[in-house]
Design a protein around this nucleic acid. Structure first.
Lengths: 182, 182
DNA sequence: GCGAGCATGTAAGTCGTTACATGATTCT
DNA sequence: AGAATCATGTAACGACTTACATGCTCGC
């Protein structure tokens, strides 16, 4: 049960609907956490049942109605307790790196293409994070947390862009060019 | 079922026992994947049942006997099929970053300490990866895959070291010094 | 004698992913 | 007309984590 902490921490930056949170988790907060929309909805329901978040319905015109959630005092207390404990080591799972590790039995050219696509995606995320970092009102005060995690995300994506370019080049330049199957 | 691909890819670099693989997954291959010993043992048994790896017993003196595993042709075929498909986006989960995001309701000094400990761990990993990268026999040929994933790990850990130092400094220098509880 | 490292597993429970399900509105 | 976006969920299944279990050797 760690997704709940990620959800609560995200809500510190302001209220959000399940859908908005889901998008952040699916695409962009991939900075330090990742979750699917279904997970987020399920978790929000549980958090509400336990009084850690509060939701209210918002009528919209031209769009389906939605429910936006805010963190409660009990939620903040839970977060503080979580922050007091020991953090688990970070976990990374990256299919693409597994493929790279296995390039000896795979198609290097196709892999180079995929890596370049990943590099393009990283450039997109980078731009997004930089926009958000620039938009923070008080990067050394109230927004210190988000400012630090964004700084991390920016450094990470910059590094990704660099590595993807270098890796694709090395894969294309490698000696035993054609292989693919045996 | 993606752990199996990570195990098979790791075995491309040479045979290993369950214990050895477990350590690589628990500590160091955290570079691009992460798994607990129990998972590795369970997966190895399944892979052997399916003929994707082959194990043989090795008698040892002064130590318990062990079983070392090698990848089979069928295993290589499976890896190649995996490499041919589309890679899932990478997934990161980092408790420490959740804490950082939530620093507004937490103890900033304690967090700075923990971040510095993480930085020290990153320096350790970095040294390990650099040793391994230097030990590769043919970084642009047979060892291209491991060379690229190590390069990624090295860049990542270097960035971690930098970020940890900067983040700890900013947490200690922040305006509203004492907080912790409310 | 005790802790650390080597070496391998099982069982129960929690978490995450995939597939299914619905429905309105806006853009092409 | 069809695709994309907004908006929210349930159910089944597969993956992962935590707790439990065993036993030997080496160094302090």
């Amino acid at each position: 049960m760690a997704l709940r902490h990620a959800v609560l921490a995200t809500l510190l930056s302001g209220e959000a609907s399940g859908y908005e949170l889901a998008k952040r988790f699916d695409v962009s907060v991939a900075n330090f956490w990742h979750a699917l929309p279904q997970q987020v909805y399920t978790e929000l329901r549980r958090l509400e049942d336990e009084g850690l978040v509060r939701g209210r319905a918002v009528r919209q015109r031209g769009r389906p109605d939605k429910r936006v959630f805010v963190i409660t005092r009990a939620g903040q207390r839970l977060l503080r307790e979580f922050a007091g404990g020991v953090a688990k080591p970070s976990a990374i799972k990256d299919d693409l790196m597994v493929k790279v590790q296995a390039v000896a039995v795979a198609d290097a050219a196709a892999l180079a293409d995929e890596i370049e696509a990943r590099g393009a995606a990283a450039r997109g995320k980078l731009a997004d994070y930089e926009r958000r970092a620039a938009a923070l009102a008080d990067p050394d005060g109230a927004d210190l947390g988000p400012s630090l995690t964004l700084a991390r995300g920016i450094a990470f994506e910059r590094e990704s862009v660099r590595w993807c370019a270098a890796a694709a080049a090395r894969l294309r330049a490698r000696p035993g060019a054609a292989d693919g199957a045996r």
